[in-house]
Design a protein around this nucleic acid. Structure first.
Lengths: 407, 407
DNA sequence: AGCCTTAACTCAAAACATTTGAATAAAGTA
DNA sequence: TACTTTATTCAAATGTTTTGAGTTAAGGCT
């Protein structure tokens, strides 16, 4: 998370090599390819690519996958990104619970662990994380662990904006935490907020594969937004970009704890459906069984739920138009803690605004898609953070801010 | 303008040097500094910085400015960014006119030229540009010209979204134009839309100096938005990010040509004041003398104008809350073709929403500021584009997409 | 004053990574 | 079979940065 005053670092030969490594790995993450092809795509010489590939193969991050027949000349020896070549740790910290997932660098979960949190002070939680990580690492034959991703609820350093039910974690200063976590875990640590991490995961393994610019609407307790611009997460000056839930979508509408009237979150969020269903006696006040209830109501085409969807779709359509005009993404993805069926219905009922830069001839992507994320979204997103920084050539921020397994 | 499918380039020694050059120049653009200081800030060795400085001095881009007394040890020889060391060309193409400004790399205009356009086909206009540029270059003792910036009205590749009065220029495909312009001018060319270019200019020479993440609301014929994130312009997948004018801010409100109801542009734009004043008989229907009229009405504290400001401030406050929550900028800047007095009044009447990530303790920047731009904003922005790419280390896009004087 | 410490800077050699050019390998084509 | 095309490797050359040993210039201390 680079939210310090912008500082720019110089480059030397080693940094250049690390960059080129990531270029090659990133290319291979997208598709199998021979060395000559990678050289052409990257502008590097074939010799350089050869050298890098030899290293990557020695580290088991890529594997040769036979020769691919081609029109003429010597057929290239294609290489394959080896998803099982290394592992990463993903942690999701919430006010009441800590989730860890270990995935390979293809994003496939290997181990999942969930623990309740009694205290949320950074010291306690980091100690607990270190313990979980230690246990996971003791498994024999474990592939190399490249780093840990850490997802905490945002926004950072702002009072009175958190979603009802969730609270910003006290003491979790995003500037200090990564260094502390690195010390505690003995691994490079990348920190971000849930929606951004989930967006990266969706881009690597989910519905946004192959896209480089997209926005991900993340249904958590509130409504978050992760924006990826040309492969890079958008964070803003203080790490709080994408606070979509508190954008006013219905001026003078429903009041929100934050002080605004008509926040999007009041119309489009898990809490919003729950409130709607509770008010109509369709869900117990403690919200237990929300997903099952929604599934049932969807099945019987329930009117109350349908009403909610109509309202939500209206607000969401407006929000999507706004996002399209502001970010000009290739596509917008909806995912997170809402049943797939409900998301699909929501998308089907959208009436997207006419005045949008996304209404262009010859679109190859739909304007709105449902994500493929499940319950683990945020923790997987944390893991995806690490893979992202392993595989994606960095911007030009100061090295202190973005440590990485390949430095 | 890099709006092709995202492709990532490898780096070699020369690219590394170009990068480091920009790091050094960028640092010096912000403040005078000695070589040791630059080395510390950039992470480069003093030797490398020394070498680069020698080159930059030989090219007259930096100048030594005496020794700065320090606590102990040999006092550093501070270097100064030499604003007069080179020049850049800025072109603004509008459907009816072509403006060229030649500035030094400090952004000070040297020559300004304005011509009406009979035809807007790229060929005709590029020829005209080449002629203007040629004339400007014949002046003797002219500093080296680093490149040309080109600003054209957006959005690109979208029908029915342009501001009333302005039209997207037919045939001006942002993917093809830079190459054509480079051929015509014999200079590296950078192209972008007006609001983004103006935002860069504001960051380099205006109210956003020292900021790295900010949003610039540009009053042209409509309302544009330029977003700078950690020093880099945000463009989106197709170059159309920041189409703020057509964001719906008043659902069900005033109809817009684009098909939406309640576009921000209907409430907050030069056209909107003009319409308001014409309807009240305060301005002739041909809008001549708009600025003088507004100045006069401001002076006498006119009620009709005040009413407009109230309405506009209401819509704008909402829009600003939205931008804050989505982009999390250090500050938001208002500028462009609206009299300073009116902008100041607009800002004074804002009631910024409570639910915003920008409401943080210990802000050092105001949330909203008036820009320092004048009539030439867009053309100066075009010039700023070139300076930006000369001085700011690049992201990792493919080199084909961003030619530059230092390649 | 003279000597020490600190900091900026320079010079020449070494290190690092990429590129270049020639050579080899493997396939289709005439 | 000879030729063309494409992929790959080897060894030498290139470009840039870093390193380590000085040199210069200032303040502080005795």
């Amino acid at each position: 998370m680079s939210i310090r005053p912008h500082q720019i670092a110089g480059k030397n030969a080693e940094k250049t090599k690390a960059h080129n490594r990531r270029v090659v790995l990133g290319y291979l993450q997208g598709r199998d390819a021979g060395r000559a092809e990678i050289a052409r795509a990257s502008g590097l010489s074939t010799q350089t690519v050869s050298n890098l590939m030899a290293e990557l193969e020695a580290e088991n991050l890529v594997q040769p996958a036979g020769r691919r027949p081609s029109a003429r000349g010597q057929p290239p020896l294609v290489y394959h990104f080896n998803a099982k070549g290394a592992a990463v740790l993903g942690f999701e910290v919430r006010p009441d619970a800590l989730t860890m997932v270990v995935t390979d660098i293809g994003g496939t979960p290997i181990v999942t662990q969930h623990e309740r949190l009694a205290q949320t002070s950074p010291e306690t939680v980091l100690a607990q994380m270190a313990q979980m990580a230690g246990a996971a690492r003791e498994t024999p034959d474990y592939p190399r662990i490249l780093g840990a991703g850490l997802v905490i609820p945002g926004p950072f350093g702002v009072e009175g904006l958190s979603a009802a039910g969730a609270t910003t974690l006290p003491g979790w200063d995003p500037l200090r935490i990564p260094a502390l976590a690195e010390a505690a875990l003995g691994l490079p640590v990348h920190l971000d907020k849930d929606a951004t991490a989930a967006a990266l995961a969706e881009g690597m393994f989910g519905a946004a594969q192959g896209l480089s610019s997209y926005a991900f609407l993340y249904f958590g307790s509130g409504l978050g937004l992760g924006v990826i611009i040309q492969g890079h997460p958008l964070r803003g000056a203080f790490g709080n970009a994408g606070e979509l839930g508190h954008v006013v979508i219905e001026p003078g509408g429903l009041p929100c704890d934050c002080g605004n009237l008509g926040c999007l979150e009041q119309y489009v969020s898990r809490l919003s459906v729950q409130r709607h269903l509770i008010a109509r006696g369709l869900l117990p006040a403690d919200t237990r069984g929300t997903d099952a209830t929604i599934a049932r109501l969807l099945d019987v085409d329930d009117n109350a739920l349908s009403d909610w969807v109509d309202q939500a779709a209206k607000a969401l359509s407006r929000a999507i138009g706004m996002l399209e005009n502001l970010f000009d993404p290739q596509s917008i993805i909806l995912g997170g803690a809402l049943p797939d069926g409900l998301l699909d219905l929501l998308i089907a009922r959208l009436t997207l605004p006419l005045g949008s830069v996304s209404r262009r001839e010859g679109r190859s992507q739909p304007r709105v898609v449902r994500g493929t994320s499940g319950r683990l979204t945020a923790a997987l997103g944390a893991a995806a953070l690490v893979i992202h920084y392993t595989v994606t050539p960095r911007l030009d921020a100061h090295p202190m801010e973005q440590p990485n397994a390949f430095n």
